[in-house]
Simulated scan of single mutants.
Amino acid sequence: MEMQAVEAARRWLADQGVRQVRDGWVSDQKPEVLLTANQVAHSWAGDVFAEDLGAAEQVLLAFGLLDLLDEYWVTCEIRFANDGAEGPLPTDALWEGYRRRLEADRDVETVTYSLWVDWFEDHTTSATAFAEVLGNDIDQVVTDRSDVLLRRARRVLECSGPVRWTVKEPTYRTAMQLPALHAAVFRAIRASFHDVYGDLEPAAALALLDRLDLPTDTQHLAELRHVLAAGHKNHYHSPRAWDDAVRSCS
């Protein structure tokens, strides 16, 4: 499916007069100017949503462009289209696009970054986004234990710091049924403390942390326990708390 989406995106760019060459991209308008993937994304990604296609087809084409270019700006255009006058985008197509890429056996930093800063940090969208990419499926993850679902779960957990604690805690608790996800839950709790917009309840987070089966020498485990036991909710609300924990645990 992803390869078909990539080839569709490549054909679409060719129709716009843009093609890939050895060291980058060129356009028919200025064939002597070498373009980066980022420049292509900024110049053409938004045009996908002006195509005479159904909205779901536009979304599929946009995700193909994301696979082809691997540029964060493509995800920005997807979000702009969702929030724009013609939006919202079809829910199934939008979140299926994210889910499939989160399951891919390759680097997906662009996708997880988009989730983190565009969907999870915005509390008008974070609950829906978290549910769509993991919360709704966590029981299936625990039951199936397939590599692709575990891969998606780890990636979502690790960037879920900004999601409201009340939204994500049930998913964290369910994920803890799988030892294979314990390290990811630890990183999720750590991010919930350290992210600028991170959210947690110290006592509840500490209770989860104490149930994780982690190596005793796990980096930052002792410090995280220390700040949570002291009742701190966020690094940026209590900027000296982590330094105090480092000194106490050293």
Rank of each mutant, 00 (worst) to 15 (best):
D92V: 07
I78Y: 04
A93S: 15
W95K: 08
G97Q: 08
D107C: 12
A81S: 11
L89P: 06
N82Y: 09
T91H: 14
D107A: 13
A81D: 02
R99S: 09
R100Y: 01
Y98G: 01
D92S: 10
A85I: 12
R99L: 02
A93E: 12
A85T: 13
W95S: 04
V108R: 12
R79N: 06
G97T: 10
R101F: 10
L89R: 08
R99F: 01
R106T: 11
L102R: 08
Y98E: 02
L89I: 07
A93H: 12
D107S: 13
E86V: 00
D83T: 01
D105V: 10
E96N: 15
A85E: 15
E96P: 01
G97M: 10
L89A: 08
G97D: 07
F80T: 11
W95G: 06
E86G: 02
R100E: 14
R101P: 07
V108E: 11
D107V: 10
D92C: 00
R79V: 13
D83A: 13
D83P: 00
A85Q: 12
T91I: 03
R79P: 00
P88R: 10
R99A: 09
T91K: 14
E103S: 11
G87L: 04
R100S: 14
P88S: 07
R101Y: 08
V108S: 06
W95V: 03
R99N: 06
E96H: 15
F80M: 06
D105A: 14
E96C: 13
D92A: 12
W95Q: 03
L102E: 04
R99T: 07
R106M: 09
A81F: 02
A104K: 13
G97E: 04
D92H: 09
E103P: 00
R99Y: 00
E86T: 06
P90R: 07
L102W: 03
A81C: 10
E103I: 00
V108Q: 14
E96R: 15
P90K: 07
Y98F: 15
R101T: 05
D83W: 01
P90L: 02
A81M: 04
E103C: 13
D105F: 09
P90W: 00
A81W: 02
D83F: 00
P90M: 06
L94T: 10
F80Q: 12
R106V: 09
R106N: 01
L94M: 14
L102V: 06
D92T: 11
D83M: 10
L89D: 02
T91W: 06
A93D: 08
P90G: 08
D83L: 15
L94P: 07
G87F: 03
W95L: 07
N82Q: 10
P90N: 06
R101W: 05
A81K: 03
D105E: 15
G84W: 01
A104M: 14
G84E: 03
